[in-house]
Amino acid sequence: MSFIVSLLVLSALIFFHELGHYFAARAMGVYIETFSIGFGRKIASFHKWGTEWKLALFPLGGYVKMKGQDDSDPSKKSYDIDSYNVKTPSQKIFILLAGPLANFVLAFFLYFIIALGGPNILSPVIGEVVKDSPAFVAGLETNDTIRSINGVEITTWKEMAEIIEKSEGSLNIELERAGYIHFITLMPKITQTTNMFNEVIEKKMIGIGSAGVSHKLELNPGETLSYATDQTIQASTLIFTGLKKLIVGEVPAKELGGVISIVKLTSDATDAGWMSVLFFAALISVNLGVLNLLPIPALDGGHIMFNLYELILRREVSEEIMIKLTIAGWVILFSLMGLGIYNDINRLIG
């Protein structure tokens, strides 16, 4: 059941991405020949609004086939009035951007639904206290609840961690222990730790770990919109940062995940409940939007670069260069996919 949910989630995200392209292309007067979810052999299809809508055997991708556009052979062009080729570079860029934009809009909508349902968030309840750390020396104990730091009310673990990291000087901590209020002063210590990219970093810490206690966020309508916006921006920033670190070598290539990881993580999220599925679906939707903006010729970002070239220099990229770059783009794309699957298999058997 979890595996089926994984495929349905991925197919839905791909569908919305391609739907963005579809509506933008139709708005620009481009004829859509095929709208496909998946690749390979056709399983089912129907014709509506002049387009063949089909489901293919391998549902890990999809495409919108516009008249005059063929990534498998860029030399195939049509100059009819309803062809993609006769549109201006600005119109083409609008069509190309619409797919990733649809993913960002979908992620925002999913985070909005999560906010309405009251997302669970870590409470500032202490679990582990590291021996000889500032917290240990100051007398903090397991199950203590942090109520405020330097007069600032604390309601979540994230708020507490951010205040500690950005603090200057000592911290005046108000905490609750067994129904009683205590006041403790301590000095954070710069400590080595690892971040979400497994990089060794240094930051101010006091030597405590979370007890894993969580509570629901109660958000008003304005806070709900802010939550959805902030989560979408944070997810986008996280993925852009991860890609940058991967490209410059700050994160090893073995950390790259593929479609197997996506299916497994979605399956795990399904076991954890529908709220977790929505969280993960929103993150993957942002991921799809960001990845498709990469300047690789086989992706939307690569086509956008070609059109920006034409828009600025007033001439098209030569057909020979276009074909060579497109082939190179597919090689890069399939290499990355292969590396991701290789890493996934290693993780499964390791």
Score class of each variant (00 low, 15 high):
residue 7 L to C: 09
residue 79 Y to P: 05
residue 172 N to W: 07
residue 90 S to M: 12
residue 254 K to D: 15
residue 226 S to D: 08
residue 284 I to S: 13
residue 106 L to D: 02
residue 349 I to R: 00
residue 317 V to C: 10
residue 6 S to G: 14
residue 221 P to L: 12
residue 44 A to K: 13
residue 226 S to E: 10
residue 216 K to W: 00
residue 39 F to E: 01
residue 192 Q to M: 10
residue 350 G to S: 11
residue 272 A to H: 07
residue 32 I to M: 02
residue 331 V to S: 08
residue 24 A to Q: 08
residue 90 S to C: 06
residue 219 L to R: 04
residue 232 T to I: 09
residue 76 K to D: 12
residue 222 G to H: 00
residue 180 Y to V: 13
residue 260 I to P: 00
residue 13 L to V: 11
residue 275 M to L: 13
residue 31 Y to G: 00
residue 225 L to H: 02
residue 135 A to D: 01
residue 342 Y to H: 05
residue 245 K to M: 14
residue 15 F to M: 14
residue 211 A to H: 06
residue 246 L to M: 12
residue 349 I to D: 03
residue 247 I to A: 15
residue 224 T to K: 03
residue 23 F to W: 14
residue 180 Y to M: 13
residue 244 K to P: 03
residue 267 S to I: 05
residue 313 L to D: 12
residue 119 P to V: 05
residue 273 G to V: 08
residue 330 W to Y: 15
residue 244 K to A: 09
residue 279 F to L: 15
residue 336 L to D: 13
residue 331 V to G: 05
residue 286 V to A: 07
residue 222 G to A: 09
residue 121 I to N: 03
residue 63 Y to E: 04
residue 120 N to R: 00
residue 44 A to S: 11
residue 41 R to P: 06
residue 169 G to C: 14
residue 74 P to M: 08
residue 149 I to R: 11
residue 94 F to S: 12
residue 286 V to D: 04
residue 6 S to L: 05
residue 160 M to A: 14
residue 177 R to K: 12
residue 185 T to F: 01
residue 8 L to Y: 01
residue 98 A to P: 02
residue 11 S to F: 01
residue 277 V to L: 09
residue 20 G to E: 08
residue 33 E to K: 09
residue 148 S to V: 10
residue 287 N to T: 14
residue 238 L to H: 11
residue 95 I to G: 11
residue 117 G to T: 07
residue 12 A to K: 01
residue 321 I to D: 02
residue 317 V to T: 06
residue 166 K to G: 09
residue 89 P to G: 10
residue 163 I to W: 14
residue 246 L to W: 00
residue 333 L to F: 10
residue 218 E to P: 00
residue 12 A to W: 00
residue 19 L to R: 05
residue 16 F to P: 06
residue 134 P to Y: 03
residue 134 P to A: 04
residue 165 E to C: 05
residue 157 W to Y: 15
residue 260 I to T: 05
residue 237 T to Y: 06
residue 119 P to Q: 03
residue 229 T to A: 13
residue 191 T to S: 11
residue 339 L to V: 11
residue 57 L to Y: 01
residue 149 I to H: 15
residue 302 G to L: 09
residue 170 S to C: 05
residue 200 V to Q: 07
residue 244 K to S: 12
residue 12 A to Q: 01
residue 327 I to W: 02
residue 226 S to V: 14
residue 19 L to H: 06
residue 179 G to N: 13
residue 26 R to S: 06
residue 211 A to Y: 03
residue 292 N to K: 09
residue 225 L to R: 02
residue 77 K to A: 11
residue 333 L to G: 08
residue 254 K to A: 10
residue 26 R to Y: 01
